[in-house]
């Protein structure tokens, strides 16, 4: 066996996995704060990538201006969806809310296709493009820098979640809504905050993903793999999302190279099936979420 090649494949997988992990954090954030399984996360990610495309390629803004604007756009989109559609559905059957997010996803994909057509696009480059070697192993520069950025964002987010006042309010709301209300936390504001942050994170992942493999409406399918990631990691576990993201990214890459691309998703979904049958609350999730 060619170990160097195996390491290169693994590194590429972990690089892709870092994006799963990043998007999964957005997913978990929404779930923890509002108990919504947001299937539109892939579409939110796609919209973020297209916003960057429009600003960077369409308006020819330089990347250090276009990226923050796209992130803000993603955040606004998240808040808009929460305020307009998710909040009126609060207290409804979780399945209905889940279906609503599927509908939202469809609206977002249609809108993107209407504006930019379904043709694949490539993003203006913003990452250094010199080849990267770790030891002897080659790693594509986009993957490497994507991983680095994702890791930094995740670290920032974790710090924010732990120490910032808003992060504390988020955690309080996640653990007990009623108590959070009683403590004077503005719960609706927390909902907006969670969706806004999640929208920004998703837009960020979209930009990184677009930089690695181009932009197209197909990107929305990324959301399904993220769904697998969060189920495997445990819906309400940030740590689980991180670990499962890297694990599944690595697994898909290795399986794709050694068994063939068509097995990538098969293995992912078989893993999902196994987790659901053996440990439905995920590797690191809390037990009671099984009762949904």
């Amino acid at each position: 066996m060619d170990w160097l090649f195996f390491i290169e494949v693994s590194l590429a997988g972990i690089g892709a996995g870092s994006l799963y992990a990043l998007t999964a954090i957005a997913f978990v954030l929404i779930y923890k704060a509002t108990r919504v399984i947001n299937l539109a996360i892939g579409e939110m990610l796609m919209v973020g990538a297209y916003l960057f495309f429009a600003l960077g390629a369409g308006w020819s803004l330089s990347w250090w201006l276009a990226i923050p604007m796209a992130l803000v756009g993603g955040g606004l989109l998240g808040m808009l969806l929460e305020r307009g559609v998710i909040r009126p559905m609060l207290g409804e059957n979780p399945i209905s809310v889940f279906m609503v997010t599927i509908g939202l996803g469809s609206i977002l994909v249609g809108t993107v296709e209407l504006i930019w057509t379904s043709a694949p696009r490539s993003l203006p480059g913003f990452m250094p493009d010199e080849a990267i070697f770790i030891g002897e192993a080659f790693i594509a520069p986009n993957t490497f820098w994507g991983f680095v950025i994702a890791a930094v964002v995740i670290a920032l987010f974790l710090l924010l979640f732990r120490f910032w006042r808003g992060g504390v309010a988020l955690r309080a709301t996640a653990s007990d809504q009623g108590a959070a209300w009683a403590m004077g936390i503005n719960v609706p504001a927390v909902y907006s905050l969670a969706w806004g942050l999640a929208g920004m994170i998703a837009a960020g992942s979209g930009i990184l993903l677009g930089a690695m493999s181009g932009v197209s409406p197909e990107m929305a399918m990324f959301g399904l793999t993220v769904l697998v990631v969060v189920i495997v990691g445990g819906l309400d576990s940030v740590f689980g999302a991180l670990l499962a993201g890297l694990l599944i990214g690595w697994m898909e890459s290795v399986v794709g190279v050694y068994l063939g691309g068509e097995y990538e998703h098969l293995v992912t979904f078989i893993l999902l099936m196994l987790v659901l049958l053996v440990r439905p609350w995920g590797l690191f999730g809390s037990h009671e979420i099984e009762r949904l």
Binding site: V85, P88, M89, E92, S96, M99, V100, I102, G103, L104, G105, S106, I107, L108, V109, G110, T111, V112, E113, L114, T117, S118
Partner: peptide, 24 residues
């Protein structure tokens, strides 16, 4: 020709959202 498919996708999603919100 290029408009029809996206419009269908949008209306499809809007129907799901609209019925769940207003006519469950």
């Amino acid at each position: 020709g290029a408009v029809l498919s996206p419009v269908r996708t949008i209306v499809f999603g809007a129907l799901i959202v609209g019925f769940l919100l207003f006519e469950p």
